[in-house]
Structures are given as C-alpha cells and as structure tokens.
Design a protein around this nucleic acid. Sequence first.
DNA 1: AGAATTTGACCTAC
DNA 2: GTAGGTCAAATTCT
Length: 329
Amino acid sequence: MASSLGRDVPAERTAAVANDLVEARDGAATLRVFLLQLDDHRAPWAQRVVDGVLDRLSSAMSALDDVSDAAAGRRSPAAGGSGSGGAARPQQSVSSSGNTRKRSFVSRRSQRPSDKKITATLEDGHVWRKYGQKEIQNSSYPRSYYRCTHRSDQGCNAKRQVQVCEADPSKFVVTYYGDHTCRDPSTIPLVVPAAGAAPDCANNLINFGTSGTNNNAAASTTGASSSQYLAMGGSAADQLSTSWCASDDVFSSSAGSFMQVDELIGAVVGSAGVTSTATVGSSALDRGGHGGMGMAGGGGGTASFPPSPNGLGSFVVGSYDDDLFPMDP
DNA sequence: AGAATTTGACCTAC
DNA sequence: GTAGGTCAAATTCT
C-alpha cells in the first residue's frame, strides 16, 4: 500500500528535512553548551550567533511541522531509545539438511531498529564489514548489509542496513540494529587532556576532520556514554558531515543544514587558535557511486583497525598530539 | 598473504 | 510462495 511513488516522495523529503533540522538544532544546542564553557572574549558573540541559529531552526521546524502533519502521519517507530531491552530471541535453527553449510540464524525480521537516519555520508565513526546486498522490492536501489568489524574479535553485534534514499539519491537511509559493544581505540573520541584541564572539559571535545576525506565521529555507545562529542568535517561542503553524540543519541547530517553553524565553527576555531586537523582511524569513502556503496574500507580503500586491546578504556593519542587540541583553550 | 567485498544460495518470517 | 536477511566461497584489492 501507499507505494505510490509520486506522492510519497514529498513526504519523505519532508521527513528528511525535518530530520536535518532536528539534527541541526541539537547540534547547535550542543555547540552552545560548549561555548558556555569557552573562556574567550568572543564566546558571548558566538553564543548569540548560536542562539540565532537555534531560533531560526525552531521556527523552521514548527513551520515544517504543519506540513508534515498534513502530509504524513507516521514516524519511524524506532526513535524511543528502547534501551537494549529484550533483543530478539536468537531462535537458532540448525540446518537440518546440514551437509554443506551449517548456520545458526538469528531471528530476523523481529529485530527492531535501534536507530534510523538519513545521512549524506556513510561515515559514522564505526568500522563496518559488508556481508550482503539485496535488491529490495519497490526500491530502485539495493540494500546493503553491514555488521561491525569487531563482531569476530569482540562479539559486537551492531549491524546496519544502508540504502540509497529514494527521495534523494545523494543521501543514504541508514538503519542501525543493536548496539556496539566493541571498543575500538580508533573509533573512540580522541581526548587530549589539556595540561591542567578541568575534568569537566575532558568530557567535551571537538575534532575537526580534514576536508572531504574522513569524518570520524566516534559514536561508540559504550565508549562515550555521557560525554559530549562533536566532530566536524572540514571545509568541503559536499562532504561535510556533522555528527555528534550527546548522551545516547547520535546524529549526522549533511552540509546543507549546517552552513551557519559551520561559519560559527570557523569563528570558534579561530578563537581557539586551531589550525591543523587530524582524523584518526580513517575509513574509505564510498567507492563507486551507487552500486558499490562500499565503505568500511576494505578491498578498495582499506581502513582496518587493529584488534583493540581488551579493556582499553582510555584513548590512544600517541603521535597525534600535534594535531589535536584541548577543548579548553 | 591477508583482509574486505561480491554474489549466489540458503533459510526464515510473513 | 515470496521477500528479506545471512552465510560463505570466490573474487578483488592493497
């Protein structure tokens, strides 16, 4: 039902825009919190700019609300952070025929997505391994199946499905299943405690990735539980993807909604006296437009992380010291 | 050589 | 019966 392409598209776009707005707003809010802690004479000005951004975003959202109210009616059921509650029971069925392949199937469709979002980039700070691709009914694009690279060595059960957005083929619809239980030193937000930095500030960090190549916003739900993390792509607008993890939520979005925030970031960066950037734990970019939708490195442009030492609770900075900066100037 | 992707087959939920 | 999700051998890439 409702496969009417022509009419659903606007609704999807609306949802996508709404999604972007929410992300932008939350990002600005996060940024504001950060600014409040900045000890810089330009901070008040920056805060005012952020307030303005928030203002506009709010009004845009309420305006959009009317539209979406009329147009759609349902939202993705996932949203409510359903804890990790009763994961689908692993109803295992051994292939009775069992001569060649023996498999243990985990229940499939009953699994509830833990998060779903539309994003312009597949980068999310985690390393994924693709394990399947499937043509989907009523969809012009195949769906790719990824699982966390650390499934084998750490038993991480996080998965995600990626599909090109019907409404906007330049974006992807990414659906996440399960939580990351892995600890990857390269995907954990880099914290470089400033000499004598207040512990407070250690929970807030900002990392400006270089343009266009990698935006590694670590969103490890285990590693960055309550800290606020903000990672910004560099200058290339196309590739700029912004992700932040505040508490339990991870957002990411494309450049479009962030231009003002981006300018603001520039101001903040300036005030912090930062010029160089560093991104650790790279991931390959999408390899070939649509068909491939590759990411997670691999055959093409590999980005594999070494098996993380067990119990690595802190962050390895090593030689990246020069390229990182403490939050608090 | 090792690691990641591709792809057809297998299996289950609906 | 069909569509969707997963497995694993084959292939590709560094």
